[in-house]
């Protein structure tokens, strides 16, 4: 069919704008991870990070993290200008080592959760969250 200028523009905008290109993890993330772990190795283990595959809106993304037995969990948005999201330290009366919260993601990226176990070891989990440009810009 014969496309008008408007239609071509809409096609072009649509094709490229459906998902932001993934943001690579920054050096800042590495520094913050090192500060938390003291440079120790991070392994895998019983830690679950729950995040949506696609964020409805990057401004408010619900995430949950659970690491049974953990002393503390650090959450990082590796693609954010400042990757640190928060550190959850569990006290003696914590009923479980899990937290749900809502975070800001600047673009499509990997969200990382690192748990420090009572014996000084570290385990991690990550999830990729697509952050998109929505609608008509409104």
């Amino acid at each position: 069919m014969n496309l008008t200028r408007r239609e071509t523009l809409a096609l072009g905008l649509g094709a490229t704008a459906l998902a932001l290109l993934p943001i690579r993890a920054s050096a800042a993330a590495d520094d913050q991870i090192a500060a938390f772990t003291g440079g120790a190795d991070i392994g895998t283990g019983d830690i679950t990070l729950t995040a949506p595959e696609i964020a409805e809106n990057g401004n408010t993304v619900p995430v949950a993290v659970n690491a049974p037995g953990a002393a503390a969990i650090m959450l990082l948005a590796t693609g954010n200008p400042n990757p640190a999201v928060g550190t959850f330290n569990f006290g003696p009366l914590a009923g479980s080592h899990s937290v749900s919260t809502r975070i800001r993601l600047a673009g499509t990226q990997d969200v990382l959760a690192i748990a420090r176990m009572p014996d000084g070891s570290f385990i991690q989990a990550s999830a990729t969250v697509k952050v998109t440009i929505g609608g008509c810009g409104g």
Binding site: L13, E56, T132, G134, G135, C136
Partner: peptide
């Protein structure tokens, strides 16, 4: 889908609404 938004019917039965976009 309009880009990545799922277009609704634009109903206002849920207004005022808390938008994640502007919190």
């Amino acid at each position: 889908m309009i880009r990545a938004d799922h277009l609704s019917q634009g109903q206002i039965n849920g207004f005022p609404t808390y938008r994640l976009k502007n919190t």
